Simulated assay, not measured.
Amino acid sequence: MPFPIQRQTTWRRAAMLAVGAALLSAGTLSIAATPAAWRPDHPVTLVVPYSAGGGTDATARAVSKQLGVLWGQPVVVENLPGADGLIGTRRVMEAKPDGYTLLLQVPGIVVTKYTPGLKGIDPLARLDPVTAISQSPAAVVASAKLPVKTLGEFVQYCKTVAKTCSLGTGESLARISGKQLAAEAGLPNLIIVNYRGTGAIVTDMIANNVNLAFTGITAALPHYKAGTLKILATQGHKRAAALPEVPTTAEAGFPQFQSVTWYGLFAPKGTPAAITQGVAAALREAVKDAEVRRTIAAAGAEPVVNSPAEFAAQVREDSERMGALVKQYPFE
């Protein structure tokens, strides 16, 4: 004899409630079994080993505010320039591996060990890669006072003008590119001038005290838009989204000068994986913020947040590539 309709309804409701309770219990156990991402309980210091005003500094300030919002703790940007970035980098190398002192660096860190006067110190041996934050093709930037429009015209100008041409560099990779340009473009008298940071190079290029620089798009872009600097080429595999009208170095006839600048976060060696993964996760959220994305885009870059393992592989690849170039164009 079939159940009465009222009894069937009561039985079904009881069964559904039992299933729902079981699912809720399983979900609660699943959430409880998932460890919460690491987050600081007091202020964090983000060290920028270059002067204020460059791409590294702009990137740091773009994300530090949002990280502070996500963590509920201040993230203080500390500029410590000098010694090709080693002064600030060493501050983090010697810090406790607890997540409270982090470093924002660029690919120049991979050739620090080859730099004369730095006693072969290899920062990568005492740091853990955490994540890339953003990346941007480097650029070939010239003073707007020069009578040239292309990289080829600049090379020809330097071969014919009575005055010796000069190239400003704020970090080691740009120095290698300068030596490579002098050797491969036939400019043996090109003067390479070393600076402590990109901001000073930009100031001197605007005044034409120095003629050319290999630098990140970030520092040059506002002056390019103002007409006080020229960007002769960008160094990525494709044209920069922020500069679609500017050719790549390959299009300009200099394919060997390809370079993408990543802005990457490092922690002291031995920082627990839970912390580095927690920091990477927070940055992944930070770059979703509309203001952060606008700031990064305005600097001619794009957000690229990867895992600690992926970033470590990227750093190793750049280290091998740049090590080969240093052997070909050694520092003096």
Rank of each mutant, 00 (worst) to 15 (best):
A58I: 12
T59I: 01
T59R: 00
T59P: 14
A60C: 08
A60N: 03
A60P: 04
R61F: 05
V63R: 02
S64E: 01
S64P: 05
Q66K: 03
L67H: 00
G68T: 03
V69K: 00
V69N: 04
V69L: 07
L70W: 05
W71N: 05
G72V: 02
G72T: 05
P74K: 08
P74H: 06
V75H: 02
V77K: 06
E78G: 04
N79P: 07
N79G: 12
N79E: 13
L80C: 06
L80M: 10
A83F: 11
A83N: 11
D84G: 14
G85L: 06
G85R: 05
G85W: 01
I87A: 08
I87C: 01
G88L: 00
G88F: 05
R91H: 11
R91M: 06
R91W: 01
V92T: 14
M93R: 03
P97C: 03
P97E: 10
G99T: 10
T101Y: 03
L102H: 04
L103Y: 11
L104D: 02
P107V: 00
G108C: 02
I109Q: 04
V110F: 04
T112Q: 01
K113D: 12
K113P: 08
T115L: 11
T115K: 10
G117C: 08
G117S: 09
G117T: 11
K119F: 15
G120L: 11
G120T: 15
I121G: 07
D122I: 09
D122H: 09
L124W: 03
A125K: 06
R126M: 07
R126I: 01
R126S: 13
L127N: 03
D128G: 05
T131K: 12
T131M: 04
S134K: 08
S134P: 06
A138L: 10
A138M: 09
V140L: 09
A142G: 06
S143V: 08
L146R: 07
L146Q: 06
P147N: 09
L151N: 06
G152V: 13
F154V: 02
V155D: 10
Q156K: 15
T160F: 10
T160E: 07
T160R: 15
V161D: 15
T164Y: 10
T164A: 14
C165T: 04
S166K: 11
L167K: 08
G168Q: 10
T169N: 03
E171C: 11
S172M: 12
S172Y: 04
L173K: 08
R175H: 13
